[in-house]
Design a protein around this nucleic acid. Sequence first.
DNA 1: GGTGCCATGTAACGCGTTACATGATTAT
DNA 2: ATAATCATGTAACGCGTTACATGGCACC
Lengths: 171, 171
Amino acid sequence: MLKYLLLALLAERARHGYELKTAFEELLGGTWPLNIGQIYTTLARLEQDGLVEVRLVPQELLPDRKVHALTETGTKELERWLTEDADVQVRLRDDFYLKILAQSAAGVGDPIALIWGQREAFFRALADLAGQRSSDTTRPATALLLDAAILRVEADLKWLDLAEQQLKPRP
Amino acid sequence: MLKYLLLALLAERARHGYELKTAFEELLGGTWPLNIGQIYTTLARLEQDGLVEVRLVPQELLPDRKVHALTETGTKELERWLTEDADVQVRLRDDFYLKILAQSAAGVGDPIALIWGQREAFFRALADLAGQRSSDTTRPATALLLDAAILRVEADLKWLDLAEQQLKPRP
DNA sequence: GGTGCCATGTAACGCGTTACATGATTAT
DNA sequence: ATAATCATGTAACGCGTTACATGGCACC
């Protein structure tokens, strides 16, 4: 997954690891907190697989930059992935879904408390997302991604209402 | 993640591996396709960590059943997880979000084609989910989970409309 | 003098995925 | 016959997470 995003960023232009990190964060709008280490390990794998080439660019005083660029096979692999149909599987592995489920299975805990905590957290998340979305430094693709995030959180909020209704003990 | 669901199922009652598998699938309503092997490895870890105890139940002809039950620490750990606030992080690591994003970064591929393929797939998924949801063998908690899945797919469909609007070349 | 940014990585771990292996019973 | 179900696992891989390590520069 990450691998393809890196390839896409390298398709834009050749970059070194650290540059990829900033570009990645900007593109993803912070929805994917990423440790820099992973970029280097992923790049190493990509180089090993021949999808990426490295050119050393010496610098004064600072360590050499390793500038990565797509190879021909790398370009093809990216293109293949981009045009291939995405596989649709609805994965609901979020903590709170599973907790509600687990509570009902185990017969332990208070779902209503969980729901309220979650609702609050979602509203905060929504505010954050909206703020970031309206910033004029976010690029269009990122704004679109943030829209997706907002729609999802709204759907999750709707679900919380439903869950509360269903799980509330009735008189 | 899986670990806690297994604990929850074991809180309901003690079970052996294979039984956990069927219970898991029933509870998750098929939204989490799971290889049986992973259950055994996870159980082994849980046993090693002292959250679960194993009792051997000999059978005639068939291999012995290893019936797993929660230990006291296991019960406590489950309870801790269940009452703890779920961490809210909106993760959008679905293939199609990332593909749209990657296409825009790389300047390669046709987003509109991607969107149409995706929309079709989502409608199919929606029909599947609705069918399963209305089956009378699904238990209430599972039905609730399926509702979540449906709301999510609907949100994703909304997003596809938005994305199409945004990405369509304008005259 | 300390914090943060630039720039590079390594190591260990968790955990999901895929594939393979075994062997008996029951249903078609 | 053979496919599915019951019941157990092992092995290898991918890849995300966390933490640790190094070292100079610029800014307050």
